[in-house]
């Protein structure tokens, strides 16, 4: 199976409360925050690796995992890290974030899919900087492919994937025949979430994503990393969504610590009037 994984780098999501907005409100300043792979995309990569292996011998890849990012030169570090964890090949589409919107990423990915002809495109359900949650769905529509979004489990079948989706009120199971687009949710990296045809159903993965061993980091430097121009993928680089300004969230006024349960109940009743 050949899988294309879309991977975005984002400003450290665990410190997203440190983003700043200058008084002009013309941008969101992430200076000082480390770049990290979008967590959902890391999970998508882990799922792709699980789908292209026999859980017991993870080094023998049964198929190919290609990672792609849209970003400037420095994002090659993010791609190298993905190669070190097991991806076979990487592609960087040269462009900066301010020149992209979800529709453009989807358009360009469509052209890339037509070149690469993967069986599956796997990606995160949302990039946690823009929090848009749209590229996977849009790509599936442009390709006229079936999709399974917010995947919590994936089981490979002959020519299809059985996907458990996290939806309101429970888990919905879909079968998508390949080729298809799958976007992943948090629980896709639980120990028994993803099985290839080759991996025994009794196999249990470690919880979370795998880490690259030192030799793999060295070896990843030799893996192929190609650069593609955005203009080679789409002639239309216009943005459909335009931003006019940014604001910090409304501040909450500082609260108080209550003495004990009785104090809390009294305040909820008399002060906040919510009881």
């Amino acid at each position: 199976m050949k899988i294309l994984v879309a991977l975005k780098r984002v400003a450290d999501p665990d410190n997203a409360n440190k983003v700043k907005i200058p008084p002009s409100g013309d941008r969101i300043d992430t200076a000082g925050l480390e770049w990290k792979p979008n967590p959902f995309d890391e999970y998508a990569l882990e799922a792709a690796l699980r789908l292209t292996e026999d859980g017991k011998a993870p080094k023998a890849r049964a198929g190919e995992v290609v990672v792609v990012t849209f970003g400037p030169k420095e994002t090659e570090q993010t791609l190298r890290a993905a190669l070190a964890t097991g991806a076979d090949r990487a592609i960087r589409v040269d462009v900066t974030d301010d020149k992209l919107d979800g529709a453009l990423v989807a358009r360009a990915l469509k052209a890339l899919v037509e070149r690469e002809k993967p069986d599956v495109v796997l990606m995160g359900k949302q990039a946690v900087d823009g929090d848009s949650n749209q590229v996977g769905q849009s790509l599936a529509e442009l390709l006229d492919w079936p999709m399974a979004t917010f995947a919590a489990t994936i089981q490979e079948e002959q020519g299809a994937l059985l996907v458990g989706r996290e939806v309101d009120g429970g888990v919905a199971v879909l079968r998508v025949r390949l080729p298809a687009v799958v976007t992943v949710d948090l629980r896709i990296v639980a120990p028994t979430s993803v099985y290839s045809l080759k991996t025994a159903r009794t196999h249990k993965y470690n919880d979370g994503v795998r880490f690259a061993a030192l030799p793999a980091i060295m070896a990843s430097k030799k893996k192929p990393l190609a650069e593609v121009k955005l203009a080679d993928l789409t002639a239309d680089s216009g943005l459909k969504v335009q931003y006019h300004g940014f604001e910090p969230p409304p501040a909450r006024k500082a609260g108080i610590k209550v003495k004990d349960v009785a104090d809390l109940v009294a305040r909820l009743k008399n002060e906040a009037k919510v009881l």
Partner: peptide, 20 residues
């Protein structure tokens, strides 16, 4: 029409419009 939307886990709000 302009839309306010939360970004960065609600730590910033963007004001955007749709051009189509």
């Amino acid at each position: 029409l302009k839309y306010r939307r939360p970004m960065f886990a609600g730590n910033a709000f963007g004001l955007c419009s749709v051009a189509t």
